[in-house]
């Protein structure tokens, strides 16, 4: 075997800085889609608690639907797949990339294409939504900080859209 394969990101790793906002690409991480009718079964398998309310984040897991969580964990994290149990654990580490939008005007940049009322989408919340016609998972990790999960093929479009919106702030 010759040298190992290198990763390629769909968008630049360089930060984009504009008036009151910074865009950056989060580093690699492990991502899992967790599904179960009974969260207890997953919790027993994983060894930690899952948030029960749609939109809540707890221990790196965002509750996206009544039986769905997106778990984000350090790169390389492996999970038991729970074979035979009434659960579904699917690794989706490379399905999306995470763009970080932060700064006092971060919400304004996202409002350019996201129909959510971001004033009422407070820190600690997460949801699947859209930016214009592109689906995203939006996590508010601080008053002035959002993390946006976007499928990798949409990432170049999405990043350009965010940069355009940030550049138009006056």
């Amino acid at each position: 075997m010759s040298e190992a394969l290198v990763r390629t990101d769909p968008v630049s790793g360089l930060d984009f800085v504009s008036e009151g906002v910074r865009l950056s690409l989060a580093g690699p991480m492990a991502r899992f889609s967790l599904r179960a009718r009974q969260p207890e079964v997953l919790e027993q398998l994983l060894g930690f608690k899952l948030p029960r309310q749609i939109g809540a984040i707890q221990a790196g897991a965002a509750c996206l639907g009544p039986d769905e969580w997106l778990l984000r964990a350090p790169a390389g994290t492996k999970l038991s797949l729970g074979s035979g149990l009434p659960v579904a654990i699917t690794e989706v580490s490379e399905r999306s990339v995470c763009l970080i939008v932060e700064g006092p005007r971060a919400a304004e940049v996202l409002a350019a294409g996201c129909p959510l009322d971001l004033d009422r989408f407070t820190a600690g919340r997460a949801t699947r939504t859209v930016f214009e016609t592109v689906e995203i998972v939006l996590l508010r990790t601080g008053d002035n900080r959002f993390e946006v999960e976007v499928w990798r093929s949409f990432a170049p479009w999405f990043r350009t859209a965010l940069e355009t919106a940030a550049g138009q702030l006056r």
Partner: peptide
């Protein structure tokens, strides 16, 4: 359960 893995 179904999970889209097109982009994975």
């Amino acid at each position: 359960w179904l999970t889209s893995t097109t982009e994975q």
